[in-house]
Design a protein around this nucleic acid. Sequence first.
DNA 1: CAGCCTCGAGTTCC
DNA 2: CTCGAGGCTG
Length: 705
Amino acid sequence: MAEKDVNMLSLEEAAAELALLAQVLGAANLAYHQDDAPEISDSEYDRLKRRNAAIEAQYPSLKRADSPSEQVGAAPAEGFSKVIHAQRMLSLGNAFEDSEVEEFAQRVAKFLGVQDAGLSFTAEPKIDGLSLSLRYENGILVQAATRGDGETGENVTANARMIDSIPQQLQAVPELLEVRGEVYMSHADFENLNSEQAEKGAKPFANPRNAAAGSLRQLDANITKTRPLEFFAYAWGAVSEPLAETQMGAIERLGALGFVTNPLTKLCAGAEEMIAQYRVIEAKRATLPYDIDGVVYKVNALDLQERLGFRATTPRWAIAHKFPAELVWTRLEAIDIQVGRTGALSPVARLTPVTVGGVVVSNATLHNEDYILGRDNKGEEIRGGKDIRIGDWVQVYRAGDVIPKVADVDLSKRDESAAPYVFPTVCPECGSAAVREEGDAVRRCTGGLICPAQAVEKLKHFVSRKAFDIDGLGAKQIEMFYADEVLSIREPADIFTLAKRDAGELGKLKNREGWGSRSAEKLFEAIESKREIGFGRLLFALGIRHIGEQVAKLVAAHYVSWGRFREAMDAAQGERSEAWQELLNIDGIGEVVARALVTAFGQTHEREGIERLVSELIVVDAAQAASDSPVAGKTLVFTGTLEKMTRAEAKARAEALGAKVSGSVSAKTDLLIAGPGAGSKAKKAADLGIETIDEDGWISLVAGL
DNA sequence: CAGCCTCGAGTTCC
DNA sequence: CTCGAGGCTG
């Protein structure tokens, strides 16, 4: 029976399925523990348990008293169950300079078509903790989820209940209210916790942020209970009715409901006041009892926030003004070259270990050849034109508080004998020539799959989470299998013949070091379960240069079936062909991407590998582009003056609803939205018999969508 | 043709 | 997370 996506289930369906699962899993548990004769296989049992956990995560209020996830004796859950956020938890754009804050305010005003003098913003400290989403249904806390990747987080409800500043119940609130905020640990509590850890002989935490994260993500909520975590509320997700009309009003409302909100939150009339509040917060930073890493600004009026909407991963109505990163000097001991899946040679700095921002750093990225040289390919200076040499004293920081980078070089401490670094022109892994294409910043190994590094990296990509996502076959295992003489994995197809080869006489996997019959069996099952794969995922997994997750999705949605796509690639080998044009006509596909695809399918060697792989698989058709709005898939043109919104806003709205917005009227145009003063475009549309509406018509068309 | 925006690719540490 | 580059818009 086909199972519905968990988030597609109705309340009734979810309840019915949970009841069934409780029965089936309960019986299986009994059989397993008492009779020792399981009625269902381990993998089926695991699968049903995961399904149960997923449904419970989505509909916490439906969790049954006899829920299989609560059963004693049941195998402990591997980590936390997943929660799909009802509304995505996004990240924020960054500003580092005052000027970028001014640009932000101008951008907002321009988008809305208003004078920036009239806009107001909130400014608040950006707490350095971890964000948490709390779901209240009829005032009762039913679920707490971490941010995760923004779409899917981890269910940490039991742990969140242990935090004093998170109310378990709220009075007089909307039926549905998701409150978002930051979980953190104060400096004093962090110091205390670390002394306790030291007494117990446990490893101390590197910084309060890690301590907070480690404490919240305890599988045993009783441990979380002993950890002094706190929570600041600063935002909300899905709500059944608006909290207020302004950001500030909503924050005050959250405060009135019993949440702790940050007292340094202030309403500002424009960029100048925002920057002033930044200075105020910066000055207080050292004396605040918790870590902050910047100041967040948000457009105050919520109706304007809604109009501004979102870009791919960030809201247009908010920005984080970050404090400068901590800079630390250390010595560059060596420069190593890594080879990526596309053959890119990436230099990595090996450093004398040093603590930066509470973390010991021993490696840092050097980006590419030009970055070491101190000059980019246009001859522009990087770091004032200073090159980096082995043995130099270098200044390191963690970009975005994560990735270590080399920021500067101390020339006065340079050893006289230090020679400029010579970037290799042959691949250190396979000895093939490494070349730099004109205008390209990276040098690439030309060895292709002959290069073991490229082959291994490509395989790692193939099994990665967004590609085939094969459990138990990670980076380490890929390296092991690549080197294995008998059960070798040298190309993706080999993964799917592994079990067959293992069944033969030679070298069984279960006899390999670190493998038993159980783990070998599990791996084969995991591989088997991925034999059926979506077209888009497969295309992405191939690891063709320029073909990432989004482009793969786009291409798959266009051709729908693998078979049709393959035929199209064959037909497109001759450029100027119709098939080549069809490929180029896909919105978002240009010449470079098209050529990458056609070349991959045209080269005998690569093509044969793909065919060997596909012969092992069942490729599932892609879904055609969704179309539940009246303008989805349609091509629209705006013309004339729009009075109630700006062009940018109208366009963003249309695109959010799946429409394509074009600048000129043609036979392909489906709908013209004409404001006053519309001229030739309106006439042309009339000539072509294209449907035309005015701005009010547009507003009513998309209202409520 | 320049200036955006989005996507791809590469990277570190826990 | 950041940089570079591809693709689209004005």
